[in-house]
């Protein structure tokens, strides 16, 4: 009787243990599904946010391009055509016709070249053809043309990322350079990129007056926009600043598709 009772106790303990295991598995399954659903929702929310931000970036870039285009039409192409008109007028009034007309022809040729460059900027497939390096060089040329600021670019690494991500990265760098010019009053801006494993670091360094990155009051829309975009790309952005200038490090994964 005692041995049987002992065996029954062991059986009951065993059964209770397996019952608890079964209940534990059920609870675990429900908990896991809930966690997975939360993760899926968060992922789709971030994806939606990324696409919203991308759309905003596209519009910003288009707007910036249009502004630059307007300025170019007025300051460059307009001036070249005006010069040509003046030269033709001079040729009509003076005897030195051949030389003046040659100069006028060269000026018109220059205007045509400028016009071709401008039409490239207005291309419909600009996003499909968007190239971070080319656009950054064009940005540097525009800034350097002022002769008040020197912007240098050192990109030894070839960017291996989708066009939309290149556009996002370009906007972040553009935002950082604009901050250097507007708020930092910098005269020298250096941009360089380094790669470590799959992470690409783009650094924007200036010799401006600097700011306190820990002071929330100093973190304007531009700074927050860089942070937000870097986060959406699965990366981060860090600032270090002092009286000698500001360094912005933008870290983004290279091969991630969003």
């Amino acid at each position: 009787m005692d041995i049987i009772s002992q065996e029954i106790t062991v059986i009951l303990i065993g059964s209770a243990f397996f019952l608890l295991v079964a209940i534990g598995i059920i609870i675990l399954v429900l908990f896991y599904q809930k966690k997975q659903l939360m993760y899926t929702h968060e992922k789709s929310r971030l994806q939606h946010q990324y696409h919203q931000e991308l759309l905003k970036t596209k519009l910003e870039t288009q707007e910036a391009t249009l502004n630059w285009l307007g300025k170019e039409l007025h300051d460059n192409l307009g001036q070249l055509l005006n010069s040509s008109k003046v030269l033709i007028g001079v040729a009509q009034r003076t005897n030195n016709t051949q030389e003046t007309l040659t100069t006028a022809g060269e000026t018109i040729g220059q205007a045509i070249t400028e016009l071709r460059m401008l039409s490239k900027s207005l291309s419909q497939e600009w996003l499909e053809k968007f190239n971070f390096e080319e656009n950054l060089k064009a940005e540097a040329n525009r800034i350097n043309a002022t002769r008040e600021i020197t912007m240098t670019i050192e990109l030894t690494e070839h960017l291996n990322m989708p066009r939309d991500r290149q556009l996002m990265l370009f906007r972040m760098v553009q935002e950082a350079t604009q901050n250097s010019i507007k708020h930092g009053m910098a005269s020298v801006i250096k941009i360089f990129a380094t790669q470590q494993d799959t992470m690409l670091t783009v650094t924007v360094e200036d010799n401006g007056k600097g700011f306190d990155p820990t002071d929330p009051a100093k973190q304007g829309f531009g700074t927050n926009s860089i942070k937000h975009r870097a986060l959406l790309m699965g990366g981060s952005a860090r600032w270090s600043s002092g009286s000698g200038g500001t360094v912005v490090n933008i870290l983004v994964p290279q091969n991630t598709s969003t």
Binding site: I4, E7, I8, I11, G14, S15, F18, L19, A22, I26
Partner: peptide
């Protein structure tokens, strides 16, 4: 089914011997 089959497993296994 999990509660029944896992919970009763030890009973099933030992019932014959008992």
């Amino acid at each position: 089914q999990l509660i029944y089959h896992l919970g009763s497993f030890v009973i099933f296994l030992t019932y014959h011997r008992l």
